[in-house]
Write a protein that binds this DNA or RNA. Structure first.
Lengths: 144, 144
DNA sequence: ATTTGTTTACGAAGATATTCGTAGATGTTC
DNA sequence: GAACATCTACGAATATCTTCGTAAACAAAT
């Protein structure tokens, strides 16, 4: 029911031909977030981090990560007994994908609306605001 | 499994005591988006709009909206045969809720990151950029 | 080598979301 | 009022997501 997805060839994966980045679910995003931050990690490590915020059994985390691997969201190194997983999709790409969807359905298509809403309710330091100003100028420069 | 929700009293609803804004699902968000844009509408109208992007039967849309009504996401006027639905949750509040979650899990907690990512990949007119600059100044003023 | 602990694999139950067929109510047209 | 169209209500099938128990593999400790 969600948007159609282009197929593409990939290696380093049992299926060989898999769908391009499937939309991660809620739980999957949490795990991706941890892997982006920590870099390659074991299930145990991810689970530990996860348990700080959320109640869940170890095998639940394991199963999730196995599924994510099958989907192509994670890669893994199974050379030692304790497998090591890493995110297979980039943080940037995923962010963009989710942002686009969100802008479209919830912000009536206006990225500006989203930006202002995000700025309004998050205390940003003066430094951060300056950083954004700088960024704005760059964009304007590029567009010319 | 998701964050706990405070209970609160409400009227204009069969249950009387319902949970505070449940997290809308993907499909529900699409419908909310349409209602925010169009204002109060019939199922038929929402369905028509929905069908522009998405494949779905009429009764599917109907059922969804009925469920959303039961959840308290929509209100409805059933005085005439053809019921008229409206969003019961504000666009702003919902936007903020989703943004917060997203900043937290996908942007490592940094609203600034989100803003820059959003600005980077959406062509914004010079006008819009100015609007954002103005907004930045206001925020700075308020914080002092 | 037996116990103990940690790991993966697997299957299946439970929870939630999505889809749609069918029936009955209501309204409209001829 | 009979035929037709449109609407709601309801139930159930399907699909997807989440959770976890159990077993087998493996390693380390006694």
């Amino acid at each position: 029911m969600f948007a159609h997805q282009d197929s593409e060839t990939r290696f380093d994966h049992p299926n060989y031909i898999i769908l391009k980045q499937q939309k991660p679910t809620e739980s999957e995003l949490e795990i991706l977030g941890i892997l982006w931050e920590r870099g390659a990690s074991t299930v145990r490590e991810v689970h530990e981090k996860l348990a700080e915020t959320k109640e869940a059994g170890y095998t639940t985390t394991l199963k999730l990560m196995q599924i994510m691997y099958e989907k192509g969201l994670l890669t893994r190194d199974a050379s030692s007994k304790t497998h090591i997983y890493a995110a297979a999709v980039s943080q940037q790409e995923t962010q963009q994908q989710l942002l686009n969807k969100m802008i479209d359905t919830v912000f009536g298509g206006s990225a500006t609306q989203l930006v202002m809403q995000a700025l309004g309710h998050h205390k940003s330091s003066g430094e951060e605001l300056d950083q954004i100003r700088k960024y704005l100028s760059e964009i304007e420069k590029q567009q010319r």
